[in-house]
Amino acid sequence: MKILPGGVCEAGSTRVNKTGGWRTFKPVYNYDKCIKCKLCELLCPDSSVNPRDDGFFEFDYDFCKGCGICANECPTDAIDMVLEEK
């Protein structure tokens, strides 16, 4: 890789530069409690909540940093924050 002065590069470089490894806690859905209100999708600061065809959502663990905003805001407590363990 060569660098350009000023840190100029093609846009979208984060697609290959995955940042999910920064996470300590990961969000996990309990679909029995989920009411498909979309708050988690709207409030995710990193666009790491993606809609599924059935109306529910799933997390993009390549980029989710485990901030927990989704779990905190979920009106039905349908998201658990689970410690990442290797």
Binding site: M1, I3, P5, G6, G7, V8, E10, A11, S13
Partner: peptide
């Protein structure tokens, strides 16, 4: 023609950006 300016540089490349500034 989208480009990023001042993109993220981790310890692998930050030194080189500073070096280029000094060279300029």
């Amino acid at each position: 023609n989208p480009m990023s300016f001042g993109a993220f540089a981790d310890p692998d490349s930050y030194t080189e950006f500073r070096y280029l500034q000094e060279q300029a």
